[in-house]
Simulated scan of single mutants.
Amino acid sequence: MSESSSGVNTLSGSFPKSHSSQFSEVGVTRAALSVDPSPDSGLVTTPLPSSRFRFVSWHRLEQCNVTGDQLTCPRVREGAPDMRKAPASPLNDLIFFIGGPSEEDLFLRQGADLYLDRGRKRREEEGQRWEERLQENWENCSELNLSYQDLGDPYQQDNFFRILRRLIRVEKLQLIDNSLTNLSSVRLPRCRMLNAHRNHLVCLRQLPKLPAVEHLCLSENAISSLEGLGALRNSPLTSLNLTRNPVTFTQDYRARVFSCLPNLQVLDGISKMPEDSVPPKLKGPENTRMCNIF
């Protein structure tokens, strides 16, 4: 029977029971006991009882029935707590110099993980929004009916106008009874037919940009003047409906509309007549007065 320089019997599988308490009381050496397994040393090693705990994290060793004199070659695991601040025990005396990352390192690591998680979530949200945009596919829509929308909430209005601004290829658009008040921020470059019946438009300047419009229905709004009608002069507009608007009671209403829109053929469902071609200024100074009905 041989004994190593540390006083531990290496041939037998047992250790002195008083070794752990003596080790903690002396407290001179802060290194873990180990046996050199190299063949050059001439020592025969036997498995230690702690071999079954070699893959256990340090912060879980105290829950196992293992003493300090049964450890050999302790391993530091990633994320292990700082044992330098652990309470004194025979086990902690052996691993006093071995600890996990410091509190500062843990804080920085948690901050980096949080930053990565936020970046990952942001990319996932952007990808989800892009998929939703592809599913909607408003850009390739050619005919759309968005009538009778309940736009009482500001979020609904913003989303509604977001859709309208994406209709770059729509040709026929229905916007009936949506309580719309201003569409001037919308451009519909390919729209040939727009129906905005029964809304709250008060001026023709509140219409969207319609360079290709041919049929325009604005009946039952609150349009009281023809200001802004010149924006449609260069458009191929052939049919316009302004019935049940205050502007229809203007003196020489039809003549003024036809004089401003040379391509117009039908106004309020009535085709162009010969007297509609006479310029309103030749009919006398009364062309600016209103026709009041009691």
Rank of each mutant, 00 (worst) to 15 (best):
W58H: 06
Y253P: 15
F53S: 05
A32S: 13
D252I: 04
F161M: 02
D150N: 11
R192T: 15
D82L: 05
I98T: 15
L207I: 03
L180N: 09
P90V: 00
H197N: 12
C203S: 15
K209C: 01
N92M: 05
E275M: 07
V202W: 09
P246D: 02
M290A: 02
P87A: 02
C291M: 14
R256C: 13
N65R: 13
G284W: 06
I176N: 13
P74K: 04
P74D: 00
T250M: 15
N92A: 08
V202D: 07
R30I: 01
F160A: 04
V170P: 11
Q174A: 10
P101T: 03
T46W: 04
S184E: 04
D252M: 11
S89R: 02
R187W: 09
S271R: 04
P101I: 00
L207N: 08
L226E: 08
S5M: 10
G269K: 02
K85N: 00
F15R: 12
A31P: 08
L94K: 06
Q206E: 12
E139V: 13
V213D: 00
R190I: 03
P39V: 01
E139K: 14
R233P: 01
H215A: 07
C217D: 11
E126N: 04
R123P: 13
I168Y: 02
N159K: 14
E62V: 08
D105A: 14
S239Y: 12
N140W: 07
E78C: 14
N287M: 11
V44Q: 11
E131I: 03
I176F: 12
G111H: 10
E275W: 09
L106M: 15
D82Y: 10
